[in-house]
Design a binder for these strands. Structure first.
Length: 532
RNA sequence: GCGAGCGUAGCUCAGUCUGGUAGAGCAUCACCUUGCCAAGGUGAACGUCGAGGGUUCGAAUCCCUUCGCUCGCUCCA
């Protein structure tokens, strides 16, 4: 049974997240709030490290990508142009019999005879349902069709042997209130707006409705021209952004995986349309070939992103890839590749890399009336750029890193007793704390003093954690759970008990538990080489 | 949103059926001990039993409502 095991595994991870301060439930003392999560001390550092590393990799280390930080609340027209206002607020209905959900605007109007019932009573017990119900059947069909469906419905309402009450019929035309599949009545249409709504200004009127952005991408598109004007970039080039987005999810699930408030790291990489690109000069610098068409750029970014995940410890064998079929593609996309991680609760998406064509800029040109076209000096052509969009969810990446790092190791101690060592094998680049610093013994002031000197030396360069409480092994194990990749212990040799070893410390590796002797002066360069 | 299960200390859980003023282990803090891989000693702190309401002389326990979590369905432009 794989299922209970996966749950058990996930529960251990959730438990560790709370115990060590990676993730807390938002507003916990008030009972929590569904779909919102906070990061504790270790989680906040981990997330910051991931975002900083992404930002450095995407923009600071590249010539051809610049950054942007836009507001969460933007002009509501943006969401009309992007299609979110219409597709995010469909009225939905549920079939009362099968519970299947439909968009009420996609139901084909039907005609026929409606059989109404006021309720049903059980023929063998006293049980009664007084819930009204009705069934639509095609004209000329036998009434028993309707009665059969109605009896099924009342059975689901707890009436085991329903005897239908108050039957009456009515001819009806062009209704969308009944399930075309089985004739069952739907629930009342309920609006489903996945965007969080608010009002700009003190008056709550329809004129000043605004939305919390459901994705960060649109901000980049609407500022495209401004960035192009100031950034001294030529196509192809990109604009990236890290920021919060909000979706009022129907059903948040799987710990932080699907939250209502989440953070995205997105790049919109603008390229020439294939016709223009094919006339452009070749070759350029690696990663900036101007003559590449969208398919080459798309592949390029998929590969870049996979390499990036590898560089923070998510190797190709824990990732999975899904090239979306034509039928799965969103309305704006020419091609989409999902990068997925094998979570304990299933293989789920971390990032989507979409070739969006010129859909977004064209929409904004249409809705704003402002030209989004650029002029290409080389080919003397004007065109609306096309876009490749690698869009990653930060919070689900953090969860993937945590799941991937969580390791239980069976070890045997000196007495031959089996014990479990829990280690968070986070990549040193993203680990919240880089090094733990320990005096071998607390009750020897010389050791403590020297350890504090080492702490101060290292603290200037990286996050450190100083601990002198309890046995040394216990302190190592505590840092194992926090994911701290290195431990430095100050012992009597550090103080010069063995003259050759004066001013050296033991450096313990979290994953192998191996120790090596290192001069204090070598610590900073060594550690920096591991964490950068 | 529907259905099922669950909610007691920081964590894992016992106690709930059979109502009588709250327990264990681990973790935490202090001191001691500890010469390199946790769980030695002493002491301390920690829960209005998810919340609200009801029944009762008395509710963690029974009833109702609600919030949260998990699973299945649904949803995920």
């Amino acid at each position: 049974m794989a299922e209970p095991k996966a749950n058990e595994h996930m529960e251990k991870i959730v438990s560790l997240c709370k115990r060590r301060g990676f993730v807390f439930q938002s507003s916990e003392i008030y009972g929590g709030i569904n779909g919102f999560w906070d990061y504790g001390p270790l989680g906040a550092e981990l997330k910051r490290n991931v975002k900083d590393f992404w930002w450095r990799s995407m923009t600071q280390k590249r010539e051809d990508v610049v950054g942007l930080e836009a507001t969460i609340i933007m002009h509501p027209k943006i969401w009309e142009a992007s299609g979110h206002t219409s597709t995010f607020s469909d009225p939905m209905v549920d079939c009362l019999l099968t519970k299947k959900r439909f968009r009420s605007d996609q139901i084909d109007p039907q005609s026929g005879t409606v059989y109404f019932y006021s309720g049903a009573k059980d023929s063998t017990s006293e049980k009664v349902s007084s819930e009204a119900y009705s069934v639509l059947i095609g004209n000329g069909k036998h009434p028993d069709h309707a009665r059969k469906i109605a009896r099924q419905f009342y059975t689901t309402r707890g009436v085991a042997n329903p005897e239908l009450l108050g039957e009456r019929t009515e001819l009806i035309e062009g209704t969308v209130r009944y399930n075309p599949g089985n004739g069952s009545l739907f629930t009342e249409p309920r609006p489903f707006n996945l965007m969080f709504k608010t009002y700009v200004g003190p008056v709550e009127s329809e004129d000043n409705v605004a939305y919390l952005r459901p994705e960060t991408a649109q901000a980049i598109f609407v500022q495209f021209k401004n960035v192009l004007d100031v950034a001294r970039q030529k196509l192809p080039f990109g604009i990236c952004q890290i920021g919060k987005a909000f979706r009022n999810e129907i059903n948040p699930r799987n710990f932080t995986f699907r939250s209502r408030e989440f953070e995205q790291m997105e790049l919109e990489f603008f390229i020439k349309p294939d016709e223009t690109a094919s006339k452009s000069s070749f070759p350029g610098e690696p990663g900036t070939e101007p003559s590449w068409g969208w398919e080459q750029w798309h592949k390029y970014w998929v590969e870049e992103r996979v390499k990036w995940y590898e560089s923070i410890g998510l190797s190709r064998d824990v990732l999975d890839f899904h090239w979306q079929q034509k039928s799965e593609l969103a309305h704006y996309a020419k091609a989409t590749v999902d990068i997925l991680y094998k979570f304990p609760f299933g293989t789920q998406e971390l990032e989507g890399i979409a070739a969006r064509g010129d859909y977004d800029l064209t929409q904004h040109q249409k809705f704003s009336g402002k030209s989004m076209a650029v002029f290409d000096e080389e080919t003397k052509e004007r065109f609306i750029p096309h876009v490749i969009e690698p869009s990653a969810g930060v919070d689900r990446l953090i969860l993937a890193l945590i799941c991937n790092a969580y390791t239980e190791e069976e070890t045997t101690d000196e007495k031959g007793l089996k014990e479990t060592r829990i280690v968070m094998k986070l990549h040193p680049r993203v680990a919240p704390v880089k090094v733990g610093i320990f005096p071998l013994l607390k009750n020897k002031p010389e050791l403590v003093k020297k350890a504090q000197e080492v702490r101060d030396l290292l603290r200037a360069e990286m996050p450190v954690f100083y601990d002198d409480a309890g046995a040394i092994g216990r302190r190592y194990r505590r840092q194992d759970e926090a994911g701290t990749p290195f431990g430095v212990t100050i012992d009597f040799d550090t103080l010069g008990e063995t003259p050759d070893l004066k001013d050296t410390v033991t450096l313990r590796d979290r994953d192998s538990m191996q120790q090596q002797r290192m001069a204090i002066g070598d610590l900073v360069p060594f550690l920096l080489s591991k964490i950068r």
